[in-house]
Write a protein that binds this DNA or RNA. Structure first.
Length: 855
RNA sequence: GCCCCGGUGGCGAAACUGGCAGACGCACGGGACUUAAAAUCCCGAGUUCGCAAGGACGUGAGGGUUCGAGUCCCUCCCGGGGCACCA
């Protein structure tokens, strides 16, 4: 019988499901291992690029299981979100229906790939049994002041018709739809993540098994900076304004002050300005700028003089107070002391408005820069010292910072401070398909959280989806109109829903006890199974999801629900799968459907218009027509082939371009494995064993076990597959070059089946059964290498003369050094290079090489 | 601008601690089987000089350390990602 993947694949998928091989009882004792693929948004269609993430996870799952661990590998659905609502508007299907149908589709696709999940733990964030606990958690946070409502300028996406968190804005644009984000002053719900900034930053140090890149991104996003708050007196007002600086040592060089136009003190400062109206008009103009405009580097700096002065507390000089659009109201105190000689932004502002510079820092071993000659701010890459700075003159920069901070504190005009770039997390969304925020507005009682026994606040199903004008929830009278839980008076429900990132910030804990109806989860069980031992997902969540999850985990910790603060011990980010797509330069570089692309002499043209096209490698996406659906591949080659190819294509953390042609190589490989099986079972039993060929194959077997195991441990799936191919080739050589022991052939083949099982599970199960095993391969024990049998008897020693390769010879492993060197010197290929020379140095690396240095 | 990560055959890549560069594949060339094709199997192949034996060159560029560098150090070029007036 030849290899027919279709038949055997459905057979085994069915059997794994029936026997519930991936289900685990969380109360079962044993060494636990919690592995988790980030739960997906159920968009419906999976392509081979998505497959990378899940296939990798499944290979790991099968391997760990065979290693004998109790592996929890659940799957669920990040099921709230905009696409479902947009589908409702476009096609009149209710978001719930659309979501449920997509979930069913995706489950079928997982099955077709042969992926095993513990479906008894399945959860969907759009089920009220799940989002109820979202609401419960929100109320806990509200009670502790960690969830609060505030009016502030927020990011508004006019296309999505909702506000966005800071993290969801990329380069001034909406992360989802790329529409430019506007600033709006709105009252919204926030979670106080900034209160955890310090802990979130410090915790990064422990995450040694996370990709360095992700830790760095989080660190930058949190943006911890150490400095000092300093008060500058405003004699005219009899008050002072506080600035934040990371360089208090440069305070003697602070020649002016700049406030954000939004700074609360501005009105008083410009009250008696002769041209007040003009300044106010300018302030309005700055406020109306989008973040994109305001922060664009090309825009240059804008500023206005307030007409007022502050006193520099160290020089006692009066310095002018300016307003500048480059000073951000949300960071620090919204006010800065400007040191134009040593800060590039201040330098540019000073040059633009003719403000004075004063050099107060100089190289430790050189002349101080001269103010009039400066072309840019002078910074301290290397050692520098304070100059022209009163009591700190002559101190090195770090010591000067300390000294001045101490003086500021002792004089009572400020203190050391740590500031963060991180802002509170805006979670209100003006959309329907999300968790309702469980708050009631009462005339008398104000903001009243919905009591626990009234949760969940159910999302009403009978809501009109008309598109555009605002949140459909606000139009559902039966939902909005309610009574105050405190006083019973008529009241109004909050109609904002939560950012879906709230849902995904704790789902990994819910997975352990997903049906718990009395608590968010069972703490005892969660504390045994968490943190997640291995988390797998894309880098696009480096900041958003992973930061929020770390934050919420700390909240759960402080609520006494969990004993840990970091939810994910190890993190792995798989790389993207890309594919060539085609763009039409004559049509504004729009993407061309594959059916319209025609190749002539390897050059792509548009079949309909004859236009020359440009090929571009990009992330798979329907809108770019470069998606490869797995269906045809599975039909033609089988899921095992797709799985092996996906893992072989490149190191899993690297980006990889899908090659429709190269997949044939993996199909050939599996086909060969199948044929070796056929040849082995056809062998005559009981033939005499044949010493050398057998020893050689056995040695190969044990080397391969060791190699594949360590490569899987290091996630080097591509090279693990290479070494299985080599091993498979060795079995082929044994069969075709006179190997005659059926017993040897079978046991070596069985080892191949076991090693290959995580990658090609169907084919290997089929052969395991064909060879007479009654229990499943997935339940077998991972083979263990015998180092004695893996040892080589002979090693190849290469001989170099002056570092150049000149010869090689075989020698018994562990041969004496003197003998090896002697053999090297007398090697026929080497001798000519030694003639007439003297050997001045001999290097011997045992088992590898001899290098003879001659003169 | 700052911070990260990369750059190895025609292509995907390998080389784990400084020790035979290019394993394993794709594509390609030659051969076997076949009426033929597909499938399968075998052989070849970094570039270059040479009939060959063999030699020279070769991991983005240049320099350095070392008996020996894809691997370590310095400078630069190119590609990708992140942050971007954060005081």
């Amino acid at each position: 019988m030849s290899y027919e993947p279709k038949t055997i694949e459905t057979k085994w998928q069915k059997r794994w499901a029936e026997r519930r091989v991936a289900e685990i009882d969380v109360s079962r004792p044993g060494e636990k291992y919690y592995m988790l693929n980030m739960f997906p948004y159920p968009s419906g269609d999976l392509h081979v690029g998505h497959g990378r993430n899940y296939i990798l996870g499944d290979a790991l799952f099968r391997y760990l299981r065979m290693r004998g661990l109790s592996v929890l590998n659940p799957m669920g659905w990040d099921a709230f979100g905009l696409p479902a609502e947009n589908a409702a508007i476009k096609r009149g299907i209710h978001p719930r229906e659309w979501t449920v149908a997509n979930i069913a589709r995706m489950k079928r696709q997982f099955d077709a790939w042969g992926i095993l999940y513990d479906w008894s733990k399945e959860l969907a964030s759009c089920d009220s049994g799940y989002y109820r606990w979202n609401q419960w958690l929100f109320v806990r946070m509200f009670e502790r002041g960690l969830a609060y409502r505030a009016k502030s300028p927020v990011n508004w996406c006019p296309s999505c018709q909702t506000v966005l968190a800071n993290e969801q804005v990329r380069e001034g644009r909406c992360e989802r739809c790329a529409h430019e984000v506007e600033q709006k002053e709105l009252e919204q719900w926030f979670l106080r993540i900034t209160e955890f900034a310090d802990r979130l930053d410090a915790g990064l140090d422990q995450l040694t098994e996370w990709p360095e890149q992700v830790r760095l991104q989080q660190r930058n996003w949190i943006g911890r900076s150490v400095g000092a708050d300093v008060q500058f007196a405003i004699p005219k007002l009899g008050k002072s304004i506080t600035v934040f600086t990371t360089r208090p040592d440069t305070i003697y060089g602070a020649t002016f002050m700049v406030l954000a136009p939004e700074h609360p003190g501005v009105a008083a400062l410009i009250a008696d300005h002769p041209d007040r109206a003009a300044i106010e008009a300018w302030i309005t103009h700055v406020r109306n700028q989008t973040n994109l405009e305001r922060q664009a580097e090309t825009a240059g700096k804008e500023g206005r003089f307030t007409g007022s002065y502050a006193v520099n507390p160290f020089t006692n000089e009066e310095i002018p107070i300016w307003l500048g659009n480059f000073v951000l109201p949300q960071y620090g105190t919204g006010a800065i002391m400007s040191v134009p000689a040593h800060d590039q932004r201040d330098f540019e502002f000073a040059k633009q408005f003719g403000l004075p510079l004063r050099v107060v820092v100089a190289p430790a071993d050189g002349a101080a820069p001269v103010e009039s000659e400066l072309e840019q701010a002078w910074g301290d890459k290397e050692a520098s010292v304070s100059v022209n700075s009163g009591s700190i003159t002559g101190l090195s920069t770090p010591r000067a910072i300390e000294a001045i901070a101490t003086e500021i504190e002792s004089r009572g005009i400020g203190r050391r401070t740590v500031r963060y770039r991180l802002r509170d997390w805006l979670i209100s969304r003006q959309r329907y398909w999300g968790t309702p925020i469980p708050i009631v507005y009462c005339e008398a009682c104000g903001l009243v959280p919905v009591p626990d026994d009234q949760l969940p606040v159910q999302l009403p199903l009978d809501v009109p989806f008309t598109g555009r004008e605002g949140n459909p929830l606000a139009k559902a009278k039966s939902f909005v109109e309610t009574s105050c839980p405190k006083c019973g008076a008529a009241a109004r429900r909050e109609t904002d829903t939560m950012d879906t990132f709230v849902d995904s910030s704790w789902y990994f804990a819910r997975f352990v006890t997903p049906r718990n109806e009395t608590a968010i989860f069972d703490s005892a069980v969660v504390n045994r199974w968490l943190p997640v031992d291995q988390y797998i997902g894309g880098v696009e969540h480096a900041i958003l999801h992973l930061l929020y999850a770390r934050f919420i985990t700390r909240v759960l910790h402080d609520l006494g629900l969990v004993t840990f603060e970091e939810p994910f011990r190890r993190l792995f980010n798989q790389g993207m799968i890309t594919k060539e797509g085609y763009r039409d330069p004559s049509k504004n570089m729009s993407w061309v459907p594959l059916g319209e692309v025609e190749h002539r002499d390897g050059i792509p043209y548009r079949a309909t218009t004859g236009a020359l096209l440009v090929a571009e490698v990009a992330k798979m996406s329907k809108s770019q027509f470069n998606v490869v659906p797995p269906d045809e591949l599975i039909e033609r080659f089988g899921a095992d082939t797709e799985r092996v190819y996906t893992l072989f294509i490149a190191p899993p953390q690297d980006e990889a371009a899908w090659d429709d042609q190269a997949i044939i190589g993996q199909h050939r490989f599996l086909n060969r494995v199948w044929n070796y099986g056929e040849r082995i079972v056809a062998m005559a039993a009981g033939a005499a064993s044949d010493g050398e060929a057998e020893t050689k194959l056995q040695r190969r077997r044990h080397q391969t076990i060791a190699g594949v195991t360590s490569r899987i441990e290091r996630f080097n799936f591509n090279t693990a597959i290479s070494s299985m191919m080599e091993y498979s080739n060795a079995i082929g050589d044994y069969l075709s070059q006179g190997g005659s022991s059926r017993e040897t052939a079978i046991s070596c083949f069985e080892t191949l089946l076991q090693l290959l099982h995580p990658f090609a599970p169907h084919l290997t199960e089929e052969w395991w059964e064909k060879l007479g095993h009654e229990t499943m391969l997935v339940a077998s024990s991972w083979p263990v290498a015998d180092p004695e049998l893996a040892k080589e008897d002979f090693v190849t020693i290469v001989v170099q003369v002056n570092g150049k390769l000149r010869g090689e010879f075989e020698v018994e492993a562990g041969a004496a050094e003197a003998a090896v060197i002697e053999a090297a010197k007398s090697n026929a290929k080497v001798v000519p290079y030694l003639e007439g020379k003297t050997i001045v140095k001999t290097i011997h690396v045992p088992g590898r090489l001899v290098n003879l240095v001659v003169k």
